[in-house]
């Protein structure tokens, strides 16, 4: 049986649930908002992980789950606790419930999309970029510095330069302009990541186990996620094919990063060089599926079902 965790109406989770229904695959959907009435416990004994959860009076042994798809949101934002004081029993209960669930699936010997620890490579973009280049992808020429002179020299060398956060904190990727150059001394307070702008076509590749879905993205914006804000028009998405070699490369990189499900942001230059900017460990795939019809959710469902044959 497959365990689905999160907010039932959230698109990525709802889509996978629908696909599992189509397959006739058994699953249990647990809304994280039910933390008060879904007892959950696990134990570890000599390397063996067991436990149980109870939903509406029915007990489920955790060992009977063969896969987990988790879309748990930050429990502190749940409506049930958002307005509670910090030490309120309800808030502590929510914290402990979510912690127990997460700790269990981090070590359970089953397919999990995705465990928390491997998602950590995204907490440092240049750290992840090293894994990217080890797999044969290019990465933009990058300088992380707190020295304005070094930054100015880099910008002068590459003419078009973008800057972004070094950590996993989301930032809007922007080109350095004259206003930014005037205030560049501010980087003395904290290093900033500068990258040479790469010309080419944006391609988003989703890998789900061994399956690959490639989406071409057309926009004049620097950051296609904010195309409407940056350029006044949304990006245009369409399904595209990539070579077998590139698909294999993407799968291998996702495996290196221990991500059964990943979203790779690529740019393919006019000279056919493939740059990888980021491997997203929690891709909001429904945006791409809704614009292109690519059955990413079906692949996710198949991957989760496939866990039964590996348990």
């Amino acid at each position: 049986m497959i365990l689905l965790l999160g907010i039932p109406t959230e698109s990525p989770l709802a889509l996978v649930r629908g696909r599992l229904d189509e397959l006739g695959a058994p699953y249990l959907l647990v809304s994280q908002r039910r933390f008060e009435d879904v007892p959950f416990r696990f134990q570890v004994s000599q390397g063996r992980v067991t436990g149980e959860l109870t939903v509406d009076g029915k007990r489920y042994a955790l060992e009977d789950f063969t896969a987990v798809y988790t879309r748990l949101m930050d429990h502190q934002s749940l409506p049930e606790v958002a307005n509670e004081p910090q030490e309120a029993p309800r808030r502590l209960l929510a914290r402990d419930w979510h912690d127990a669930v997460l700790r269990w699936y981090e070590i359970a010997p089953i397919r999990v999309v995705n465990r928390t620890a491997p998602m950590g490579s995204n907490s440092s973009k240049p750290f992840q970029a090293q894994a990217v280049t080890r797999r044969g992808f290019f990465t933009p020429e990058t300088l992380i510095t707190n020295d304005p002179e070094l930054a100015r020299a880099f910008i002068a060398e590459h003419r078009r330069v973008v800057f972004k956060s070094t950590s996993g904190i989301r930032s809007i990727v922007r080109e350095v302009d004259e206003d930014d150059l005037r205030r560049i001394d501010a980087i003395r307070s904290c290093p900033v990541q500068f990258q040479a702008y790469v010309e080419g076509r944006n391609v988003r590749v989703h890998t789900v186990g061994d399956e690959v879905f490639s989406t071409g993205i057309s926009t004049e914006a620097t950051d296609y996620r904010y195309a409407h804000r940056q350029h006044g028009e949304p990006a245009v998405l369409e399904a595209v094919e990539v070579s077998d070699d590139l698909a294999a490369q993407c799968r291998a990189l996702a495996r290196d990063l221990e991500l059964p499900f990943a979203g790779l942001d690529l740019k393919i230059t006019p000279a056919d060089e493939v740059y990888c900017f980021e491997v997203n460990p929690s891709p909001a795939y429904s945006y791409y599926e809704s614009h292109t019809g690519q059955p990413i959710s079906a692949a996710l469902a198949r991957y989760l079902v496939g866990g039964a044959s590996h348990s």
């Binding site: 240049p126 970029a129 090293q130 280049t133 080890r134 290019f138 990465t139 933009p140 020429e141 990058t142 300088l143 992380i144 510095t145 707190n146 020295d147 070094l150 003395r188 290093p191 740059y275």
Partner: peptide
């Protein structure tokens, strides 16, 4: 300390 300079090149050197 100052003048932090961490470079990553397109082919992977750093």
């Amino acid at each position: 300390s100052f003048r932090w300079e961490h470079r990553l090149h397109s082919h992977g050197a750093s």
